[in-house]
């Protein structure tokens, strides 16, 4: 039986009014789909309602709700990439499978070229498209981990808890994800920027 103070804090109407906009924009930014984003926000608030006792008031209400929303987004990423806990994450901590990016003496096989001003590049729509395509092309577990780390800005501890991998493993996999992006973008951006300019 909830005590009076607990019941007082449960007010979904207030949640939607004060945080709905931010939560929806956050979901839209990461899902690019209105219906999915709406479902995600709705599921977040349902989960918040069910677990309102776990809100300890240490973080702000918005931080707490955003934390739940992140997990809902990850669930959708996981479905998108058909990722299950069991089969996707290799747990071999020595599996530094990055050899094909380097030759025997440790030199780049395809040396990273100068792509131009990083600030301008990040703003270019064409570059973003190449980036998104390359993210989809890499192994799903790497893409999910990279998105958790860089898009959802999770720290190592959150990543390890959510995806059930070790710190060492997450670092190795992030390295592989970045090498994949480097190689894929180098190949495809070179082509599209020639067309563009």
């Amino acid at each position: 039986m909830p005590n009076a103070e607990e019941t007082k804090t449960i007010n979904p109407e207030k949640w939607i009014d004060s945080h709905g906009k931010i939560l929806f924009r956050y979901a839209m930014a990461h899902l690019q789909n209105e219906a999915l984003a709406e479902d995600c926000v709705q599921d977040t608030l349902v989960a918040a309602l069910e677990h309102s006792h776990s809100f300890n008031g240490e973080s702000s209400e918005l931080t707490w709700l955003t934390g739940i929303l992140k997990h809902k987004i990850i669930d959708i990423y996981r479905k998108r990439h058909r990722i299950t806990y069991e089969n996707e994450f290799c747990t071999d901590e020595n599996a530094d499978n990055t050899d094909n990016f380097f030759d025997q003496s440790g030199h780049w096989v395809n040396a990273p070229a100068d792509w131009g001003d990083p600030l301008k590049l990040a703003e270019k729509k064409a570059f973003r498209q190449v980036f998104e395509t390359c993210l989809k092309k890499m192994p799903a577990s790497l893409a999910l981990l990279f998105s958790c780390r860089e898009s959802l800005e999770m720290n190592t501890e959150e990543i390890c808890n959510t995806l059930g991998i070790t710190t060492v493993n997450s670092r190795i996999m992030l390295y592989r994800a970045r090498l994949h992006l480097q190689g894929c973008i180098q190949t495809n951006w070179g082509l599209s920027s020639e067309i563009q300019t």
Binding site: A29, H30, A122, F146, E153
Partner: peptide, 16 residues
């Protein structure tokens, strides 16, 4: 750059 692009997805301009 990867980090910057991933962190700032395109704003959809769509609101609740």
């Amino acid at each position: 750059i990867f980090s910057r692009v991933a962190k700032n997805p395109e704003d959809s301009n769509q609101d609740i």
